[in-house]
Amino acid sequence: MNPATINPLTLPSLSLANRSTLPSCPAVYFVLEGDRVLYVGRSRNLRQRWVIHHRYKQLKAISNIRIAWLECSEPSLLAEIEAAMIRYFLPPLNGSAVTSPQITLLLDKSLKEKFKRVCSIRGMKMSEEIVRFIEKSVRENDDLLALVDKFGG
């Protein structure tokens, strides 16, 4: 694939605020600010990737952010396509540090290895998957938290 033939501005895209409606497809994605490519990434499941993205808070602070995507019918090519797009577009956020909360897990070695494999299959970092799980758990228990806050506990 020749990256020069790809124009991220003509690809399907959504605003960052509408990321929950992204398709659940394998894709290379482009984070755009106006007509500028800020970041290029890949995922076997684009919607799931953006449920909790390690750069979400950073990107949310910038106005006019869109996520454009190039669907990939062959997921085994995602890494190669992503690398070619990064080399071509030289997005400023790729390779830059992101501050994130530190999580230390004390797990049985076997469980940790299985979790690592699951994350790899899902195209997620372990820390991202843990944060996603914690955020989901908190969302699912908002009513319980509200009751505890109201009546004490």
Results as ranks from 00 to 15, higher is better:
Arg49Ser: 04
Ile62Asn: 08
Leu106His: 12
Arg42Ala: 08
Lys136Met: 11
Leu77Val: 11
Thr10Pro: 04
Ser127Gln: 12
Ile103Pro: 05
His53Phe: 12
Ile134Gln: 05
Ser96Leu: 14
His54Met: 11
Ser137Pro: 07
Ser20Ala: 15
Thr99Tyr: 14
Lys60Leu: 11
Tyr29Phe: 10
Ile103Gly: 01
Pro91Ile: 02
Glu135Tyr: 13
Lys57Glu: 14
Asn7Lys: 12
Asp35Ala: 10
Leu16Phe: 10
Glu82Leu: 04
Thr99Lys: 14
Leu22Pro: 03
Ala4Glu: 13
Met124Val: 04
His54Trp: 09
Leu16Ala: 06
Val51His: 05
Glu33Cys: 09
Glu135Asn: 14
Leu70Met: 08
Ser100Asn: 13
Ser20Ile: 12
Gln48Asn: 09
Ser15Tyr: 15
Ile67Arg: 01
Ser20Tyr: 15
Tyr29Ser: 00
Pro75Tyr: 10
Ala83Trp: 04
Ala83Asp: 09
Ser110Lys: 05
Met126Arg: 05
Leu70Lys: 03
Lys57Cys: 13
Asn7Thr: 13
Leu105Thr: 02
Lys125Ile: 07
Phe133Gly: 05
Glu128Asn: 07
Met85Arg: 07
Arg122Tyr: 06
Lys112Ile: 02
Ile81Met: 07
Val98Ile: 11
Leu105Ile: 01
Leu32Asn: 03
Ser110Ala: 14
Arg44Lys: 08
Ser96Arg: 15
